[in-house]
């Protein structure tokens, strides 16, 4: 089994491993700004700080043969699904060790062994593609499912509505997960959208829907399991709205000064990492000492990942010309 599939298996089986993966994502994301400052990353990145429970909760419920489409805010989902931190950071640093050999960048992470389609940087872009993956499962009569993860902002773009309608009339095995982190770029949801409970929109498409607490990994697992089971057993699509909060700014340049006072602090009280810690301590799976060790070990691990990625070579000129078309072939 590949290292990456082993990483996936770990979060599917063990709640401490799930906690560790959340810590990995947190630690990983917190390194990014420093790497920009050090000139090791260029362009832009979109951090998922505060949204770790959704990423890991999802990964723990899905099979590697299920298909996931996600967005440019994808570091956490990629790590959760099992991509190695080297494959993700290497891609963000534009190095050959990256999952796309350095030509894709932070917004475009993928690994088909783990079911992750290249993440899209176009709002709504991944939604119809997930429906198409689900269509292939339906036609081939497998019991795999497709999952589309997208932001609250995507609920206002045509692709959202077209895809929900299509998935509903075709009864596709797809789960739509709207990660409602309250903001789309610099605009709070109330400025762009007349409702805040976005899952309600599925009513128009006669599709089952509900919202859940995206800060609590247990709640995420329960909700996603319900929708995934429905899809696997031929019951069709579901729209889940995960209520989360974007702890960081939209992208690198954004300090998020537009937030109402106290809003971030209110959500930080429900930091998904803290909630997971509390529940694992309560169940006896973790204690203060173990938590401290997990955190300091992870710091050291991520430091090593940074060093490994720094040492990885830059892509050569030939890699610019690769993977555009398949080599010519005649006939079937």
């Amino acid at each position: 089994m590949s290292v990456e599939l082993k990483r996936r298996k770990a979060v599917q089986e063990d709640s401490v491993a799930q906690y560790e993966r959340m810590i990995e994502i947190r630690e990983f994301e917190e390194q990014i700004n420093g790497l920009f400052a050090a000139g090791l990353i260029r362009g832009t990145t979109h951090l998922c700080l505060g949204q770790e429970a959704l990423a890991v909760g999802l990964a723990s419920v899905l099979r590697p043969t299920d298909i996931v489409s996600a967005t440019y805010r994808g570091h956490g989902i990629a790590l959760a699904l099992g991509l190695s931190p080297e494959a993700v950071l290497g891609e963000i640093m534009g190095k050959t060790i990256g999952c796309c050999g350095g030509v894709g960048g932070s917004m475009h992470l993928s690994n088909m062994d783990l079911g992750l389609l290249p993440t899209s940087a176009i709002i709504g872009g991944g939604m119809p593609i997930a429906a198409g993956a689900a269509l292939s499962f339906q036609v081939r009569k497998t019991d795999d499912v497709a999952v589309a993860v997208f932001g609250d902002g995507a609920a206002n773009i045509g692709a959202f509505h077209e895809t929900l309608n299509l998935a509903s009339i075709w009864n596709l095995p797809v789960v739509f997960i709207c990660d409602n982190n309250v903001y789309g770029e610099y605009s709070r949801i109330n400025i762009t959208t007349p409702i805040e409970d976005l899952h309600m929109r599925a009513d128009s498409y006669n599709m089952p829907h509900f919202s859940l607490d995206g800060m609590d990994i247990g709640v995420v697992q329960k909700g996603v399991t319900e929708a995934v089971n429905r899809a696997r057993s031929g019951g069709g699509p579901t729209l889940i709205e995960a209520k989360t909060y974007r702890f960081a700014g939209h992208s690198r340049a954004d300090q998020a000064l537009y937030r109402p006072e106290g809003e971030l602090e209110k959500w930080q009280k429900r930091d998904p990492i803290k909630l997971t810690e509390e529940s694992l301590v309560a169940s006896g799976a973790l204690n203060a000492e173990k938590i401290a060790k997990i955190q300091s070990d992870m710091k050291a691990t991520i430091e090593k990942v940074v060093a490994t990625c720094q040492a990885s070579p830059e892509p050569n000129l030939a890699s610019m010309f690769q993977n555009i078309f398949t080599p010519a072939k005649v006939g079937r």
């Binding site: 260029r42 362009g43 534009g94 190095k95 796309c100 350095g102 030509v103 894709g104 960048g105 475009h108 830059e314 892509p315 000129l317 890699s319 610019m320 010309f321 555009i324």
Partner: peptide
């Protein structure tokens, strides 16, 4: 530019 998508890597983009 060559007939290729815009590459992300800084080294490649500068040559693109």
């Amino acid at each position: 530019t060559p007939d290729v998508p815009v590459p992300y890597s800084g080294v490649l983009e500068a040559r693109f």
